[in-house]
């Protein structure tokens, strides 16, 4: 058995898993505060990555400028999307809202193909060195950056929801909208804010993945990959989202390792998380950290 490869794959899994965790967190954020199951989550990554790519290639901006411009763009994009498309849906049946988000997902995927074409594109070289070695393990700078950014986002989420006025207001709204209103919190702006944050943070993850793998349609697959992570952790738990993301990230890599070494079934990387999801839901229908009375979809 090739232990070195296994360890390398597990570390890769953790790095990717952290990104899954970040995206899953955005998903949970939107679900918790607005009760919307956002099937267009993956498209936030896709749009973010393409927009940043366009800033770098067409406008020839330095990476850091393009990156922050993209974040501003995505914040506005998320807020507007909520205000225009989802605000009229407040109070409508959950199935209608799900249909809307599935529609949004298809729409934006096609829109990106229409604007940027169907071919994958790669980002310009951002880092001078590609990789270096620690204790014989090959560490890519991009991965290191992705881990750093993911951890930074998680810490920022924690601080935001623990100490900031708007974070507290969002938690209050998630707990009880009427009480939130009685405290002077505008539920409408909380809804818009949570979509804005979800779009911005997901776009960050999209750009980070784009730096490593290039931008392509496969980014929106993250939106589907995140489902096992979210449901594993429980639909309404932010901690659960992070743990779920890490588990899925490691799992797909380990599954791929054993498959390539022994079973040769093929394509385990994509399928294994869903098998495990099935098994876990069998024993824990509400996920590992979920609240028992949440609505099933």
């Amino acid at each position: 058995m090739n232990f070195e490869l296994l360890i390398q794959l597990i570390i890769n899994g953790l790095i990717v898993g952290l990104l899954y965790g970040v995206v899953a967190m955005c998903f949970v954020l939107v679900y918790k505060s607005t009760q919307v199951v956002n099937f267009a989550q993956g498209e936030f990554l896709l749009i973010g990555a393409w927009v940043c790519w366009a800033f770098l290639i067409y406008a020839e901006l330095p990476f850091i400028v393009g990156f922050f411009l993209t974040l501003f763009f995505m914040a506005g994009f998320g807020v507007l999307l909520q205000m225009i498309v989802l605000r009229p849906m407040i109070g409508e049946p959950i199935i209608s809202v799900i249909m809307i988000t599935i529609g949004l997902s298809m729409f934006f995927q096609s829109l990106m193909k229409w604007i940027f074409g169907v071919d994958p594109q790669s980002y310009p070289q951002v880092f001078e060195t590609q990789s270096f070695e620690i204790y014989g393990l090959n560490v890519e700078v991009a991965y290191l950056m992705s881990t750093g950014i993911a951890l930074l986002i998680m810490v920022a989420f924690f601080l935001f929801f623990k100490y900031s006025k708007h974070g507290l207001a969002m938690r209050a709204t998630a707990f009880d909208q009427q009480v939130a209103q009685s405290l002077g919190i505008s539920v409408k702006s909380v809804f818009a804010m949570s979509w804005g944050i979800a779009a911005t943070v997901s776009a960050t993850a999209g750009i980070v993945i784009g730096l490593v793998n290039g931008v392509s349609d496969s980014l929106s697959v993250m939106g589907i990959k995140v489902f096992p992570a979210v449901i594993l952790g429980g639909l309404d738990s932010i901690i659960g989202a992070i743990v779920g993301g890490l588990i899925i990230g490691v799992l797909e890599n380990v599954a791929e390792f054993f498959d390539s070494q022994y079973f040769h079934i093929g394509n385990m990387y994509d399928i294994a998380p869903f098998y495990v999801l099935l098994i876990i839901l069998w024993f824990k229908p509400y996920g590992l950290f979920g609240t028992k009375d949440i609505e099933r979809i």
């Binding site: 209050a172 009685s182 405290l183």
Partner: peptide, 30 residues
């Protein structure tokens, strides 16, 4: 609320999954 009228709703309706300090901070939201 911003005009200076605050209602304490029936059944107290505090935010149960927050600490009392966080509840107090929320009171000062406006």
């Amino acid at each position: 609320v911003r005009s200076g009228m605050f209602q304490v709703m029936e059944g107290r309706r505090i935010i149960e999954d927050m600490t009392s300090l966080e509840n107090l901070k929320l009171g000062a939201y406006t």
